[in-house]
């Protein structure tokens, strides 16, 4: 597995897109800090960007990489290597390289602007952890999509649709149901609905850390009670981990049964 992982990482590190992605974050970090020089404000802006962009790039990259390396994968499958190793190696490779671009691309500008000397380091670290989780989650989801269809265009379309659903449509449905059932107590429901969507979960995790929770009023109190404590933090990180584990299990089922 490590050999495969190594191959796919080196393959990706040679690819232009990883660099473009890395340079994008690098530039973004520097521009943000150059424009307002305030680390805490930059963290908020960054949150908006990370929550939209990492899932999108993760799903697009995952699908693209699968289709592009399909011939190499088939070649590997002809060798006496277990399927588990091949696919998990590839999956880890692509997720790690994306995470590396994210962490380095944003880490370098923030560290050079004196991140270690401020208290923002926890918020920033949380932001990077959440961003990395989103990478792993969305690459896994998109690999599932790619494995289920051989049609490149279709696969790509589904991946984008999935991203669109989780980042926009889900929230829309969420909001509509909140409005429809506004006569009922909704805090438990909104807590539950938040956990079910990795993007919402990440957003709330960061927002609560940025002390916007005071705005949330009563619901905020419920959320803060849940997420604000150490236990809540562990629970929500567990929820994010489950979001990685379940797609992976599904993925294993898929590639073990797939006829190449």
């Amino acid at each position: 597995m490590y050999k495969i992982l190594k191959y796919s990482i080196f393959d990706l590190l040679r690819s232009r897109w990883s660099y473009v992605y890395f340079l994008f974050y690098l530039l973004l970090g520097f521009v943000l800090l150059f424009l307002n020089n305030d680390l805490s404000k930059a963290v908020i802006t960054l949150m908006n960007i990370i929550l939209v962009l990492t899932p999108l790039i993760g799903s697009a990259f995952g699908v693209m990489y699968y289709y592009n390396s399909k011939e190499f994968t088939e070649l590997l499958l002809a060798q006496p290597i277990r399927r588990n190793k091949i696919f998990f190696g590839q999956y880890t490779g692509i997720s790690l390289s994306l995470t590396l671009s994210l962490v380095l691309g944003l880490g370098i500008p923030f560290v050079s602007y004196g991140l270690f000397r401020t208290s923002e380091i926890f918020d920033f670290t949380l932001l990077l952890i959440v961003g990395s989780f989103l990478n792993f989650i969305f690459v896994a989801l998109s690999y599932n999509i790619a494995l289920s269809t051989d049609n490149k265009i279709k696969g790509f379309g589904y991946a984008i649709l999935m991203w669109l659903f989780l980042s926009v449509i889900y929230d829309g449905l969420f909001l509509i149901s909140l409005l429809m059932f506004s006569d009922y107590p909704l805090d438990q429901f909104s807590l539950f609905a938040t956990i079910l969507n990795p993007i919402d979960l990440s957003r709330i995790l960061i927002l609560l850390k940025l002390d916007i929770s005071a705005l949330l009023g009563y619901t905020g109190a419920v959320f803060r009670k849940f997420f604000g404590t150490g236990l809540g933090m562990i629970l929500s990180l567990t929820a994010l981990s489950l979001w990685v584990v379940f797609p992976l299990l599904l993925m294993r089922r898929k590639f073990n049964r797939k006829d190449f």
């Binding site: 949150m47 908006n48 929550l51 939209v52 980042s167 926009v168 449509i169 929230d171 829309g172 969420f174 909001l175 909140l178 409005l179 506004s182 909704l186 805090d187 909104s190 938040t194 993007i199 919402d200 957003r203 709330i204 927002l207 916007i212 705005l215 949330l216 009023g217 009563y218 619901t219 905020g220 959320f223």
Partner: peptide, 20 residues
């Protein structure tokens, strides 16, 4: 306006859908 009607909706603050 929405938050005024249903305060719970504030959970969606800063989500992409809300921006849209």
């Amino acid at each position: 306006y929405v938050v005024n009607q249903t305060p719970e909706a504030l959970v969606l603050l800063r989500s992409l859908f809300v921006d849209i």
